[in-house]
Amino acid sequence: MIRFAHLSDIHFGGENQAAVAAAGDYVNAGGFDLTIVSGDLTRFGEKVEFEAAAEWLSGLKGPQLVTPGNHDAPYIAVAERLFVPFRRFERAIGPAWAQSYVGGGFAVRGVNTARGPQPRLNWSKGQIAAGQVREATRFFQQAPAECFRIMVCHHPLIEMIGGPMTAKVWGGEAAARALAEAKVDLVLSGHIHAPFTWPYPFGDGKTYAVGAGTLSVRERGVPPGFNVVEIEGAAIRVAALVWGGSKYEPYRTWSLDRRPI
C-alpha cells in the first residue's frame, strides 16, 4: 500500500495553531511515503511567515513535495510581487516553478499555478501554461509504466461544483484534458479550503481531482483539516480529516477506482 498525506492552505501568520501542531504529530506518526503540501503556506508571503513554515516542515518525517500558492507571493512588498514573486518561497522552502519525486511505485509532479501580477484584477486566480503541461506530461511519460501518477498544483484546474469559491484557472480545462489523456491518476490541489474528489470528464474517466481543506482560521464551511490518500491494488481511498479540537476525526471518505495498470 502507498500512503500520502495531502495538506494545503496552512497560511502561517493566520494558521490554526492547535490544528497545525496536531497535523505535524499525525504526519510523523503516520509512516507516509510522501507528504504533499499544495500551496498557500503563508498568509501574506511575509518573511517571518516563511520562516515559520520552513521550521514546521523541517520537523516532519519523511520526504516532502511542496508547491506554492497565490498567498506565497508577497502581498505588501509590491516590487517583489511584480518582479520576483516567488523568491521568498524559493529561499525558505525550495523550487517554485516545478517539483518532482519518483520512488516507491509512484511519480509526483508539482506545478506552480500561482502568479505574481496578472492581466486581470484578481491576482489570486490561477494560470497554467501550455509549456508547464508539456513538461508535466513528459515527466509522467518517462516514469516507469507501473508508477501511480500524481500531479500537484494549488488551484483546481476545473471548478469544484458547488464549491465555496472559484479558481478560474486560465488554461485549466486544456491542462485537465491533457493530464487525463496522459493517464495521470490524481490531480491534488487546495485553494478553496474544502475537501472534494471528482473525476475529470475526459479520457477514461479515471483521472480524479482531489482537493484538501485548510489548516488556517480562514474556514469556509469546513473545520481545519487535511487528506490521507491510500492506494492499494485497484482502489484509491481518500479520507478527509478535520480538527475536532482535541484530535483529527473523519469528515468525508471516498473510494475511487484506479485504472488498470
Score class of each variant (00 low, 15 high):
R177E: 14
A235P: 15
L256G: 07
G221S: 14
G59N: 01
S8W: 06
H154G: 00
T35K: 01
A143V: 09
T67S: 12
Y251D: 12
R134Q: 15
A130H: 08
W97P: 13
E232S: 15
E90D: 04
E15P: 03
R134G: 05
H193F: 01
A98R: 07
L57G: 05
G203Y: 08
W254R: 02
M160T: 08
M1D: 13
A98E: 13
L256A: 10
V228W: 03
P164N: 11
L34E: 00
S189P: 12
I236R: 12
G24W: 10
R120I: 15
A143G: 11
G62S: 11
H155R: 04
M1R: 08
V108T: 00
R120C: 06
P223K: 13
E249V: 14
I150D: 00
Y208M: 15
V210G: 02
V217F: 08
A178F: 10
M151Q: 04
G203T: 02
V238E: 03
P95E: 08
G104N: 10
G31E: 09
S255A: 13
R81A: 06
S124D: 10
P144M: 04
N122M: 12
E55V: 06
F226K: 12
P144L: 04
W123D: 05
K125I: 06
G105N: 08
A136M: 03
S255G: 14
G45Q: 07
G162Y: 15
R88A: 11
F86D: 07
V210I: 05
M165T: 12
A23D: 01
G69R: 01
L34M: 02
F4K: 02
R43N: 15
L65V: 00
P224R: 14
T42K: 09
V111W: 01
S124V: 07
A5F: 06
P85K: 06
H6A: 04
R220P: 01
V66M: 00
G45C: 08
P117H: 05
G205C: 06
Y26L: 10
L7D: 04
A96E: 01
G203S: 02
P63T: 09
V229Y: 07
M1K: 11
H191M: 04
F106R: 12
V210W: 01
A194R: 11
A176F: 10
G225F: 08
A143I: 13
Q64K: 05
W56R: 03
V37I: 11
W243P: 05
G104Q: 14
A234M: 13
A29I: 06
